[in-house]
Each structure stands twice: as structure tokens, then as C-alpha cells.
């Protein structure tokens, strides 16, 4: 299993990096840490490349490489049990251009489960391109993605599950809030949530919301299945059934001490572009970390 973790700077990406490393450890997954820097005008590309090449001779590197270096040092601290990572050294000279991106080759880390990648361009396009190069199960991204279109683009265009680490405080004791309905993705959300809950010993709640007072067979059946799946793994679960507008209820219920896990919508992409979907609206409105499982 392979996860992609997008970072922006040492100032803002600390919690995202820690959360990403933690989730990757929970799943024993390979982690590709990617920094996406702004791409400047094509007209200036030549002078810029010339300048960067000359700067490298003075041991001065692309600002993104400094961010990757920081991420690398942090990961060493976060994952003390990773012996390969412990013995590896960050060397900017080992950055190689490969498929429109720069990859840091970690020469002494045979079997190391960490990769470092530098890309330049528009965030969604670059993450999408990176995800298409390998079979990624999850993309982990920081919390400043609140804009309407960013929420839509993240969910709609990245071909993997997405964890948006919005307002994540790792010192806080979170509960996992699994949003359960009759959709296909609920099953995968439960599997994902169970794995994290098991490793981190977090409490799990399931929430099923109906617009009317009547909970159909699909909803109650899905909730029952979720409970069974979690209990089968010895994870205690509290179940809630509420009535009202689903997105408002999700947001109100989650407060500030839950991590939401929900399935992606299967609605028509055009409809989602113009009218949104439950995951898009929840991502826009909630203030807690949210995992959208595809």
C-alpha cells in the first residue's frame, strides 16, 4: 500500500506530516512526501534553470528542497523504529529529475518506506500526475484547503482516498466519527476507520443521518454491518441515528474532537461540479480533520 503526503512548508505542515506518518505506520504503507512549489512563467524558465544550476554550485538549493530536508529530519524523529530511515542521510545532490518531477534518491535506504518528491505547478494537477504514476490508496493534505473549488477539486479529481488534516492537533484525544449510509463507499470507510482506531486506540462512533424520521432498511442495515465489522475486530462502537440535513448534522455532531471518516459520493461529476455533494459540503464546512474514502 502506498500513501501520498503533500506538504507546503515547515511552518504549516508539521501536524500533517506527523499525522501522515502515523497513518502510514498504522497501515504499514509506503509514504511519498511531495512538495508542490509554484511554477513560474514559462518565459522565464531558461534564466531560472540557469540560476538554479549556478546556485547548486554554491550549495544553495531550491526552497522546496529545504522543505523536503525538514520533512526528512522530522520523519526520522517521528519514526524512530525505521532503521533504514535512521541510517539514511539527506543529500540534495541525489535529487534526480524523473517524469517531470524531482525525486530524492536515498542511496543507503534499501527497503526504506519513505520517498521525497519535488514538483512544480498547480497543486491539484501535480498531485493528480503523481498519483497516476503509482497505485496510491490515500492522499494526505494539510488543512488550508477550505475554498469551495479546492474542496471540490480535491475530492473530485484526485484518484485516491483523501485525508484533509484540517485543524489537526495530535495532542488532542480524538474520536473517530464514521458516517454510515447505504452507499458502496461506507464499507471501505469502515475498514479504513477500523485500522486507524485499532492502532491509535481511538474511540469509534458511527453516525447515520436521515432527512426524514424513518430510517430505511438500507441505512439501518449499513449501520448494523458497520457495527458488526468493528466489533469483529474488538473495537467498541457507539452508534447514533439522527434526523435532519445530513451535512449540517455531520458538522454539528463532529464539534471539534472528532475525525470524520466518510465515503466519497458516486453522483454524476457534472452535478457535483455545480451542486456539490455531501463529502464536498462537509469538507467545506467542517473544522475537523476529514477522511474521504473512495
Amino acid at each position: 500500500m502506498k500513501f501520498l503526503l503533500a506538504i507546503s512548508s515547515s511552518k504549516y505542515s508539521g501536524p500533517t506530516l506527523r499525522a501522515g506518518a502515523m497513518i502510514a505506520q498504522a497501515f504499514d504503507a509506503e509514504l511519498n512526501v511531495v512538495y508542490v512549489g509554484a511554477k513560474l512563467k514559462g518565459l522565464q524558465e531558461g534564466p531560472l534553470d540557469l540560476s538554479r544550476e549556478n546556485l547548486a554550485k554554491w550549495n544553495i538549493y531550491h526552497p522546496g528542497i529545504e522543505v523536503l530536508k525538514w520533512a526528512f529530519q522530522e520523519l526520522k524523529e517521528i519514526c524512530p523504529a525505521n532503521d533504514e530511515l535512521k541510517s539514511a542521510e539527506f543529500n540534495p545532490e541525489h535529487i534526480k529529475e524523473d517524469q517531470n518531477r524531482y525525486k530524492l534518491i536515498l542511496p543507503t535506504t534499501k527497503g526504506c518506506k519513505v520517498q521525497l518528491t519535488l514538483r512544480e505547478g498547480e497543486l491539484i494537477q501535480e498531485l493528480r500526475d503523481e498519483l497516476q504514476l503509482d497505485d496510491y490508496a490515500l492522499t494526505i493534505i494539510g488543512g488550508s484547503q477550505g475554498k469551495r473549488h479546492m474542496a471540490h477539486d480535491l475530492i473530485q479529481y484526485l484518484p485516491s482516498s483523501i485525508f484533509v488534516a484540517r485543524g489537526l492537533d495530535l495532542k488532542k484525544k480524538y474520536k473517530l466519527l464514521l458516517l454510515v449510509d447505504d452507499s458502496e463507499a461506507t464499507k471501505r470507510s469502515v475498514t479504513f476507520g477500523a485500522e486507524i482506531a485499532k492502532t491509535e486506540h481511538w474511540e469509534v462512533r458511527t453516525l447515520t443521518v436521515s432527512k426524514t424520521k424513518r430510517f430505511g432498511r438500507g441505512y439501518s442495515g449499513a449501520a448494523k454491518k458497520a457495527k458488526a465489522a468493528l466489533e469483529k475486530r474488538d473495537i467498541p462502537v457507539e452508534q447514533f441515528f439522527l434526523t435532519g440535513d445530513p451535512v449540517t448534522t455531520f458538522v454539528d455532531f463532529s464539534g471539534d474532537d472528532h475525525i470524520i471518516i466518510m465515503g466519497a459520493s458516486t453522483a454524476n461529476p457534472l452535478k457535483k461540479l455545480f451542486f456539490g455533494s455531501k463529502p464536498i459540503k462537509t469538507l467545506e464546512r467542517s473544522t475537523v480533520p476529514i477522511l474521504i474514502v473512495k
Binding site: 522565464q44 540560476s51 526552497p63
Partner: peptide, 15 residues
């Protein structure tokens, strides 16, 4: 702007 002249783009790219 940082895009108008190559010199401006180069210093801007230093971050």
C-alpha cells in the same frame, strides 16, 4: 511583478 523581468523572477524563486 515577479514575472515581468527574468531578474525579478530569479530572485522571487529564492522564496
Amino acid at each position: 511583478t515577479a514575472v515581468a523581468a527574468p531578474a525579478c523572477t530569479i530572485i522571487y524563486s529564492s522564496g
